[in-house]
Design a protein around this nucleic acid. Structure first.
Length: 590
RNA sequence: GGGGUGGUAGUUCAACUGGUUAGAGCACCUGCCUGUCACGCAGGAAGUUGCGGGUUCGAGUCCCGUCCAUCCCGCCA
C-alpha cells in the first residue's frame, strides 16, 4: 500500500517540488487524451492529480481505466500550475500533483447517485446507500460539527465538576409517557426489559448515591410516530445536580449552550437568555416554544368583540372561549384566495372553525368582519394594536387551546410568507412556570405535563385539593428559534410529596410501588434536593448545521415508519429465536 | 389513527385532453482529444412507468385497492 504523507486538503505552493503520497477517492476525472486530470478526494479536501502519457506511461495507462469513486494511492511530485490554470475556488488550487506511480485499492461500480451532489437522488434511495451519502461533503460537514458539539459538552461539563456515568439500556418498562420499546428476556421467559425513554430514574438515583453532578450523552428510545425532527432513537445530553435551585440549573445550562454555540460555530450568545412564563408564551405567541426572531404577537381581542355586533365570537367568549388577533403587514398580499388557503390550513390541522379578518388600507378598516364594529371601536383597535397602513388583522375565536395552536401556527406561516425571519439570528429563551398537570379529557384524569417526578411549586400545595390545573411546576424548557432544545425540572425528593403527586395523577400506592418502588425506596435513605434537565443533542446539531431534518445529523437514521432502509430492519427472526424467548407471533390483523 | 405531496432508464426529470416505437441531462460503454476543473466532440447501450385489479378499441395518463418515501395533525410523561 502507498501510505499517504499528506491529506487531499493540505498541499499548497509551499510543497512545490516535494515528493508526496496521497490516498483518496476519485471524485471527478477529465480525460484530455494524452493528459488526465483527476480530483482526488478525502474528508479533508480535494487535490488535482495529473497523469501524463509522455512522462509516466504505466501510471497513465492505469489511470485511463479508472472510474468515479475508485480508491487509489499515488506517489507524485507537487508542481505549480500554469498561471492561467490556477483554481482560486479551492485551497489546493494553485498546485497539481504529477503522478509517477499509482496503486488501485478498490474499484467502484457506478454509484447509485452522484457523490458530488447529495440532491442527485431521492431520500429513500440515499438512505438505502447511506454509507455513500455519508461520503458527500454536506454530511461529512454535519458529522464534524456533531463531534465538535459533543466535545464542547464534555469539556464544559467536566470543567464544571460533572462526571459522566453510563446507565443501563435494558431497564424496567414504565407505561407512562411514550410507548416503550420492549426487549424480551430469554432467561426469564414472559418478562421484558424496556429501552430507556430517558435515564430519568437512574439519574435521580445517582443523586441519592451522592454523585452530586452527573451528565451523560446517551441514546433514548420512544416508540411513537415520527417527524422531520423525531426519530425512534435519539441522543440526549442528560444532566442532574444536587443541592441546587431552578436558577442554578438554568444558569449552568445557559453556560453550556453558550459554550456549544461558541465552540461549534463561533457564535457568542448573550450571557443571559430571556425568561418568559408558560402563560405569557401561550398568550403572546400561541406556543410553549416561541420563535422570538420576529414579532407578529397575538393580541387580546375580546374587549372589541364585546362592543361589536359579531355574535359568533360573543357566544364563544360567553362559553369560556377566547378571541385573539394577529396584525400582519402587506395586506395586499392577502387576496380572498390566499385567505381561504390559510383558513383551510387552520381548519385542517388545528381544528379552527374559521379565520376572521379585516384589512386596514388607506386609513380605513374594511372588509371581512369589519362591518360588525362601530367606528369608535375600529379606532381603538387601530390605535391599541398599533395597526399600520396596509395591514391585515387575522382573528380566531375558539376554545383556548384551539386559539393558541391555530394562531401560533398562523404566526409562523405569516412570518415565513412575509420573510420576517433572519436566518443568521439566534434567539434563545427559557420558558418557566409550566402547569404541573393537564386534564386528559379522553381518560378523565390529570396527566403530568413533564413527568411525575417534577416538583410542584411548594407555594401551590393548597391547590391540590381545590384547582390542580393552577398548580405551577418547577419545570423549565430552553428554546432556540422556535425549537425546544431541552427541558427539565426540580424533582421531588420527599416521599410524602411524591405520594401526593401520584395520588393526583391517579396512581395508587400499589401501582406506585410496583412501577417506581425502587426510586421511592431510595428516597428513604437520605435523598438530596435535586434537579436537572436534558437536551436533544440531534436537534441542537440540526440547528447549528442549518438543516431542517434530524436525519441529516444522525449517521444511520430510520425513516418516518421507523425502517432502516439500509439493512432492512426491523426484520423477521427465525422461529428458533422465538422459541428460546417463549414468544409466538399472532397473525397480522386485517 | 387522519390529511397533503411524490413513486417513469443506474439517477434526476419530461411525456398536453387517454392515442405512433415512453424522451432529455448526468452516470455508464466505445472511439477521438496534452491544461482541464460542469472539459469538449462523435457514437452506443439502457424501461415490469412501485405493485394488484378495473374501465376502454387503446392506460404512464382515468377509477379502486395496496406498498414505500416524505411533510403535517393526533401522539411524543
Amino acid at each position: 500500500m502507498i501510505k499517504r504523507t499528506h491529506t487531499c486538503g493540505e498541499l499548497n505552493k509551499s510543497n512545490i517540488g516535494h515528493e508526496i503520497h496521497l490516498n483518496g477517492w476519485i471524485s471527478k476525472s477529465r480525460d484530455l487524451g494524452g493528459l488526465i486530470f483527476i480530483d482526488l478526494r478525502d474528508r479533508y479536501g480535494k487535490t488535482q492529480i495529473v497523469f501524463n502519457e509522455e512522462n509516466h506511461i504505466n501510471a497513465f495507462n492505469t489511470a485511463k481505466k479508472l472510474g468515479l469513486e475508485d480508491v487509489i494511492g499515488i506517489k507524485g511530485v507537487v508542481v505549480a500550475r500554469p498561471e492561467d490554470a490556477i483554481n482560486k475556488d479551492i485551497a489546493t488550487g494553485e498546485i497539481d500533483v504529477e503522478v509517477n506511480e499509482i496503486s488501485v485499492y478498490n474499484e467502484s461500480e457506478p454509484t447509485p447517485f452522484d457523490i458530488n451532489d447529495r440532491n442527485s437522488a431521492m431520500e429513500d434511495h440515499r438512505l438505502r446507500y447511506r454509507y455513500l451519502e455519508l461520503r458527500t461533503e454536506d454530511l461529512q460537514k454535519n458529522f464534524v460539527l456533531r463531534h465538535k458539539v459533543t466535545q464542547a459538552v464534555r469539556e464544559y461539563m467536566s470543567d464544571d465538576d460533572f462526571i459522566e456515568v453510563e446507565t443501563p439500556i435494558l431497564m424496567k418498562s414504565t407505561p407512562e409517557g411514550a410507548r416503550d420499546f420492549l426487549v424480551p428476556s430469554r432467561i426469564h421467559q414472559g418478562r421484558f426489559y424496556a429501552l430507556p425513554q430517558s435515564p430519568q430514574t437512574y439519574k435521580q438515583l445517582l443523586m441519592v448515591s451522592g454523585f452530586d453532578r452527573y451528565f451523560q450523552i446517551c441514546k433514548c428510545f420512544r416508540d411513537e410516530d415520527f417527524r422531520a425532527d423525531r426519530q425512534p432513537e435519539f441522543t440526549q445530553i442528560d444532566i442532574e445536580m444536587s443541592f441546587v435551585d431552578q436558577n442554578d440549573i438554568m444558569s449552568m445550562a445557559t453556560g453550556l449552550v453558550r459554550n456549544i454555540w461558541k465552540k461549534a460555530i463561533g457564535v457568542e450568545l448573550p450571557s443571559e437568555f430571556p425568561v418568559i412564563t408558560y402563560h405569557d408564551a401561550m398568550e403572546r405567541f400561541g406556543s410553549d416554544k416561541p420563535d422570538l426572531r420576529f414579532g407578529l404577537e397575538l393580541n387580546e381581542f375580546s374587549d372589541y368583540i364585546d362592543k361589536s355586533d359579531f355574535n359568533t365570537f360573543k357566544d364563544i367568549i360567553k362559553s369560556g372561549g377566547k378571541v385573539k388577533a394577529i396584525v400582519c403587514p402587506n395586506a395586499n398580499n392577502y387576496s380572498r384566495k390566499v385567505i381561504d388557503e390559510l383558513t383551510d390550513y387552520l381548519k385542517t390541522y388545528f381544528g379552527a372553525k374559521g379565520l376572521a379578518w379585516m384589512k386596514y388600507v388607506d386609513s380605513t378598516l374594511d372588509g371581512g368582519i369589519s362591518r360588525f364594529f362601530p367606528d369608535q371601536v375600529k379606532n381603538s383597535i387601530i390605535s391599541d394594536l398599533d395597526v399600520q397602513d396596509n395591514s391585515i388583522i387575522f382573528i380566531v375565536g375558539d376554545n383556548k387551546n384551539t386559539v393558541y395552536s391555530s394562531l401560533g401556527a398562523l404566526r409562523l406561516k405569516l412570518a415565513d410568507n412575509e420573510n420576517l425571519i433572519d436566518n443568521s439570528h439566534w434567539s434563545p429563551l427559557w420558558v418557566t412556570d409550566f402547569p404541573l398537570v393537564e386534564w386528559n379529557e379522553e381518560k378523565s384524569r390529570w396527566d403530568s405535563l413533564h413527568h411525575p417526578f417534577t416538583s410542584p411549586d411548594l407555594n401551590d400545595i393548597d391547590l391540590f385539593d381545590t384547582d390542580p390545573s393552577k398548580i405551577n411546576s418547577l419545570g423549565y424548557d430552553i428554546v432556540m428559534n422556535g425549537y425546544e432544545l431541552g427541558g427539565g425540572s426540580i424533582r421531588i425528593h420527599d416521599r410524602h410529596l411524591q405520594s401526593k403527586v401520584f395520588n393526583l395523577l391517579g396512581i395508587d400506592e400499589k401501582e406506585a410501588e410496583e412501577k417506581f418502588g425502587f426510586l421511592l425506596g431510595a428516597f428513604k435513605y437520605g435523598a438530596p434536593p435535586h434537579g436537572g434537565l436534558a437536551f436533544g443533542l440531534d436537534r441542537i446539531v440540526m440547528l447549528l448545521a442549518g438543516c431542517n431534518q434530524i436525519r441529516d445529523v444522525i449517521a444511520f437514521p430510520k425513516t418516518t415508519s421507523a425502517m432502516s432502509l439500509m439493512d432492512n430492519s426491523p426484520s423477521p427472526v427465525y422461529s428458533d429465536q422465538l422459541d428460546e424467548l417463549g414468544l409466538q407471533i399472532k397473525s397480522k390483523k386485517k
